[in-house]
């Protein structure tokens, strides 16, 4: 299990590096997703009760995606106001940290609605698959 976690993490980092070095923008999608899977697998493997650093992991992944995308954008033209952009990024990280903390707090609280919450989650995941298909359809148009 430990090797699987390490492999998933390595693949995620490799995808991120490939995205930056080979201008492969899908690497910015695959890399963080693999890192998230690796993080989940590590939680299951270790079996820790609750990882309180989860909001920081969320903010870290946001930072990966944002900085990676910014790096790719710079190839199409330098930023006119880079300081302003940097300020927006810092603000975004704080908002992400706050949102992640709130969700983590809500998720870790025991509500006693186990199956109902699971069903809500499954419905949300299904709805997301539909949402993911929407931009792809727009691309084709």
């Amino acid at each position: 299990m430990g090797a699987t976690v390490a492999l998933l993490g390595a693949l995620g980092i490799a995808a991120l590096l490939l995205a930056l070095l080979a201008v492969w923008d899908d690497g910015l999608v695959a890399g963080p997703a693999l890192l998230l899977v690796a993080y989940t697998a590590s939680l299951v493997y270790v079996g820790a009760p609750l990882d309180r650093s989860a909001p920081l992991v969320g903010a870290g992944l946001i930072a990966c995606v944002e900085l990676g995308s910014w790096s790719l954008e710079l190839r199409d033209g330098a930023e006119e106001r880079p300081v302003r952009r940097l300020g927006s990024l810092v603000l975004l990280l704080f908002v992400a940290l706050a949102a992640s903390t709130v969700v983590f707090g809500m998720g870790s609280a025991s509500t006693g609605a186990g199956l109902a919450l699971w069903l809500v989650g499954a419905a949300a995941a299904t709805a997301l698959i539909v949402l993911i298909a929407m931009p792809a359809r727009t691309d084709r148009e």
Partner: peptide, 23 residues
């Protein structure tokens, strides 16, 4: 990442992945 977070959270039965995916 939102989809992966929700699915991982449901599969693992842990709140951390969905907290990571929340932003």
């Amino acid at each position: 990442l939102t989809a992966v977070g929700i699915v991982a959270s449901l599969a693992a039965g842990r709140p951390e992945p969905v907290a990571v995916a929340a932003p």
